[in-house]
């Protein structure tokens, strides 16, 4: 556990210095502030616009961190050979993967925190405090989604180049959000192969739409406790599954 924390701390230290990350955070904050102006041309729907655009900006920031910074994480260590100093140490390779995941998750939470604070300040200034609860729940859900994407990009980062790892993770992102298409296909198609194929994809690929409650935030609707617990359990189980296969690949890897 101590080693995992050490690696996580080091990863956090490394990633928060990344200028790309700081630019992305800055852009996200700018978007949140710009929504004040977009809101003014939305004909009395300014609060809705501010909330929707801002939580989407925060979400986009989380996805960016997961996909682009995650895909560089392992690869950078291999390329620069900084791994040569860590791997021979008394630390399980699995602990390195978990540590990296935790570190990048901590980075995601940190940038999410800053951008969410800006959003809440904007809403506070506008006198709209009724959305705080739904916003926080939505951000929590999207953080769970970003953790899964971090693990997916870590897996690909350990087997291929950063570009291919990003492409593969983006593909998983789209597949994960296309669950409604897949459902529609396997419920309506007559082709057995297509139906069963889609069913397999639907059940095995991560269903990222589960973590999307952004549509309900502006209506103040919160998911029930049962749904929330089920979603957290799904994220946990899938995360363990991803950690397992990443560890299996990473353990056998030659450097």
């Amino acid at each position: 556990m101590k080693h995992i924390i050490t690696i996580a701390k080091n990863t956090l230290r490394e990633t928060i210095r990344d200028r790309v990350l700081l630019s992305a955070l800055f852009s996200s904050i700018v978007v949140i502030l710009v929504t004040l102006f977009i809101g003014s041309i939305s004909l009395d729907q300014s609060t809705r616009i501010i909330v929707n655009f801002s939580i989407t900006a925060i979400y986009a920031l989380q996805i960016f961190v997961a996909i682009f910074i995650g895909s560089m994480l392992i690869y950078k260590e291999i390329e620069r050979k900084t791994f040569y100093l860590i791997l021979p140490k008394p630390i399980h390779r699995g602990a390195i993967i978990i540590g990296k995941c935790l570190g990048l998750t901590a980075t995601t939470i940190l940038v999410t925190f800053f951008s969410t604070v800006v959003l809440l300040l904007v809403l506070f200034i506008k006198g709209e405090t009724s959305y705080i609860g739904p916003i926080l729940v939505s951000v929590f859900y999207s953080t769970l989604e970003s953790i899964l994407l971090i693990l997916i990009s870590l897996f690909f980062s350990s087997v291929t180049s950063p570009i291919m790892a990003s492409v593969a993770t983006i593909a998983f992102f789209f597949i994960g959000h296309a669950s409604s298409i897949m459902q529609r296909i396997f419920m309506t198609t007559e082709s057995v192969i297509l139906r069963e194929g889609m069913r397999v994809v639907y059940y095995t690929f991560p269903n990222l739409e589960k973590f999307n409650i952004r549509n309900e935030v502006v209506y103040g609707a919160l998911p029930s406790l049962t749904i929330t617990l089920t979603t957290i359990a799904y994220a946990l189980v899938y995360a363990v599954f991803l950690l397992f296969i990443t560890n299996a690949v990473f353990k056998k890897k030659d450097f």
Binding site: K2, H3, T6, R13, K89
Partner: peptide, 24 residues
């Protein structure tokens, strides 16, 4: 290793601190 590579943003002390924590 040959021509060892380090985390450039750390100081020498911080790097050895990191290594020491891996050895408990």
């Amino acid at each position: 290793p040959e021509s060892p590579a380090f985390y450039q943003y750390l100081t020498g002390y911080e790097f050895l601190e990191f290594v020491a924590s891996l050895f408990d």
